[in-house]
Design a protein around this nucleic acid. Structure first.
Lengths: 223, 223
DNA sequence: ACTACCACACTTGTATGGTAGTATGGAACT
DNA sequence: AGTTCCATACTACCATACAAGTGTGGTAGT
């Protein structure tokens, strides 16, 4: 009997691990990867490593140069801004839908989430707060039966988050974000689509100014 | 000297060909693929075939069941509707941007494209008309410097187009679409964002009714 | 000192063999 | 006749060997 459960294929495991390391900047933009090196590190052959590279390349997280090497993609400011743009448009549209029709259990889920957010802020648990933030937005999509849309946003977030990660975590004004989340839930409950859209727009509008600053501070990470 | 230019890697070639066959329904939803079979058909080894399967799976065009087989994904009505939804939101937002600021050369490109559309309609050249339709929308994104957004839409279009393909080509009311395109160009020129958004919304609103009808007509192709 | 060249140590791309899990059809048994 | 079991022929997964392109450092020649 084999209790050493293999959670998934080697390919998926390598893919997930590399993705995480890239998004956390543990593998910084521009870093050289290599099929052989990675295969040794993960204790698998080159085949599953290669296949995970293919996936990462399709997401734009790595760049494969034939016969030369594979590198973690530099952060492309244009791509980051467009990812933010797309997310803003989609989230605005969905929260409007939520104001038109939203199941009670999803609204309850939002309220519960808000309570937990307050706890996490009090405990200064940034990691947990990240998760709750994501779950909050996800719940809105779920209530509108737009989970496929949420997946697309998640993919685009890869590029956004890598840029966000450069700012110190303490930079996050959780109180402000919490207040906005609370306003969103309120707007959905009172079916005020205009107010909801307005809050969401502000919530998702990182100013481009920050981008330029980051690019000056970490020039080697940007395209 | 080797004049048999390999336009790209075997992997890319296989990927492109399979994708085309899936989108054209030459490989219908539910069809069984197999690494071995495909490798024989393309005259390459299983490796590049496998890697193209990985890419197709990530796009949701095929489904890989370990140790069982690889199948062309069934059309998921929810996914199709969400793809349409996302495209509508993004295109509405972008055409509003175009009304605020749009380079002259892009506007000229739209006008030229419109002329060609009229020609193609007259010649009843459906394939050409498809291309011009796509180019028209692409030009709008290009003028707004939102080409990454366009790429995302292109990916989602895969699912939309497969559904569209089921309708007979003659179903397309090119005259109507042409008229809408013309109105869009007009609105951009006169910077009338509200009018532009309105036309775009109608332009991209396939009614869900069609979906249900198609699902009844081709039940084996749907999830 | 400088330049042209080439061997070599890398890289990714492709081919192939073996492994393990799954579905199926037929044989043996009830 | 109906059911269970197993051989077999698939499948995708992974490891490995080889092919082919690229960059670099050293060397020979000028």
């Amino acid at each position: 009997m084999n209790l050493n459960v293999t959670p998934a294929s080697a390919r998926d495991a390598v893919y997930a691990k590399l993705r995480e390391q890239i998004l956390s900047l543990e593998l910084p933009p521009g870093a050289a990867l290599s099929e052989k090196e990675a295969s040794l590190a993960f204790g698998v052959s080159r085949t599953p490593v290669r296949e995970s590279f293919v996936r990462l390349a399709q997401e734009g997280l790595v760049q494969v140069l034939p016969q030369r090497g594979t590198f973690v993609s530099l952060i492309d400011p244009e791509l980051v801004e467009e990812a933010r743009f797309m997310r803003e448009q989609l989230e605005k549209a969905v929260i409007r839908l939520a104001c038109a029709s939203f199941p009670d259990e999803s609204l309850e889920a939002l309220e519960t989430n808000l309570l937990r957010q307050r706890e996490s802020i009090a405990r200064e648990d940034d990691k947990r707060m990240f998760e709750l933030d994501e779950a909050f937005h996800r719940t809105i999509f779920e209530g509108c039966r737009k989970l496929n849309t949420w997946s697309v946003i998640q993919q685009m977030n890869a590029h956004l988050n890598r840029s966000r990660m450069l700012r110190l975590v303490s930079d996050h004004d959780w109180d402000h974000l919490y207040a906005q989340h609370k306003q969103m839930a309120e707007a959905i409950r009172s079916r005020d689509a205009d107010a909801a859209e307005k809050v969401m727009k502000e919530h998702l509008s990182l100013n481009i100014h920050d981008q330029a600053m980051l690019k000056e501070k970490f020039p080697q990470y940007f395209k």
